[in-house]
């Protein structure tokens, strides 16, 4: 029931998004409406939805694998590794097509996440806060590496583009890779139960007949692909992967079979709203989506943590 309401609200927001921009659709020559929507408004709206949904799911899966609520791909080294991949491609093969860029970014992102998880596997389970600590420092190391390479190659400005996600450049022909991210995220629904069980730990997983390593690798692959595609096409968007799964978990628990659709919708909604606000708040200029998410998401999260959490808690 509430799921359908969410979906309707999301659809309404998405159609609003089609009408928001510097050019007022209602006052433009009708012949130009369709090209405008096709080339700019529609791609942008779809891009926000896909990014939000897939990042939220990637965050959720990462938290289950790490069995820790404070990790998310964009701050625990995966995003930074993807950025490193993009940067290296740009330095070594400046003329590489976007497919190669994306492939390399996915590979470095996967390498970065595998390394992160092999690090945290060794941490004692009695100290759960060590995991985000190692994540922050690990992400910092990779991030410093990115800055260093960029500094030496005089590409700091490029870095700025990948480090701060923005949708203002989203046009037809430049966002379609995000569909892959969306598909990768959607595929996780097929193995939702497996990921829920992984969240109960290795012993329980093995006991229930799961091949733990395979499922973990599958999850890491999905996280890396989603992260790399997002970084390549729109740049790093922090916080969605942290806030949305935590909010959904507070309200609806962690049984993925039930909550994954909610997580996807909430992520899509958050990014869409943030992008809308960003387009309107200093109209006709734009505020980057990451900035708006920081404000909107943070307030929503705090509210939930102190008010909404009580019910479930």
């Amino acid at each position: 029931m509430s799921k359908w309401l969410c979906l309707i609200a999301l659809a309404a927001l998405a159609s609003v998004s089609l009408f928001v921009g510097v050019i007022d659709l209602l006052r433009v020559d009708p012949a130009e409406i369709w090209p405008l929507i096709r080339d700019s408004r529609f791609p942008r709206t779809v891009a926000t939805l896909l990014t939000g949904a897939s990042l939220a799911i990637a965050g959720q899966i990462m938290q289950l694998i790490a069995r820790n609520r404070f990790v998310e791909p964009m701050t625990s080294g995966t995003g930074q590794s993807a950025a490193l991949g993009v940067l290296l491609t740009a330095v070594l093969f400046p003329t590489a097509p976007i497919g190669l860029k994306m492939g390399l970014a996915s590979i470095t992102a996967l390498g970065g996440s595998v390394l992160f998880f092999s690090l945290i596997r060794r941490l004692p389970p009695t100290q759960p806060l060590l995991v985000p600590l190692v994540g922050l420092i690990y992400g910092g190391i990779v991030g410093a590496g990115v800055t260093y390479v960029a500094f030496q190659a005089d590409m700091l400005q490029f870095i700025e583009i990948w480090m701060n996600g923005e949708f203002s450049g989203t046009l037809r022909g430049r966002y379609e890779l995000l569909w892959l991210a969306g598909i990768a995220a959607a595929l996780t629904y097929l193995v939702a139960d497996q990921f829920s069980i992984i969240g109960l730990g290795e012993a329980v997983s093995i006991n229930l007949g799961l091949s733990y390593r395979q499922v973990v690798m599958l999850g890491l692959l999905m996280i890396s692909v989603v992260t790399a595609l997002t970084v390549v096409t729109v740049g790093i968007i922090p916080f969605v992967g942290l806030v949305v799964p935590n909010m959904v978990s507070l309200m609806a628990g962690d049984n993925l079979r039930r909550t994954l659709p909610i997580t996807a919708m909430a992520g899509a909604g958050l990014v869409l709203i943030a992008d809308l606000v960003g387009r309107l708040v200093i109209y006709p200029f734009e505020m980057p989506v990451g900035t708006v998410i920081g404000v909107v998401g943070a307030i929503a999260f705090l509210w939930l943590l102190y008010k909404g959490g009580r019910r479930a808690g």
Partner: peptide, 9 residues
């Protein structure tokens, strides 16, 4: 979360 909020503001 607060530090993200402050930074974004």
């Amino acid at each position: 979360v607060l530090s993200v909020l402050f930074r974004s503001l």
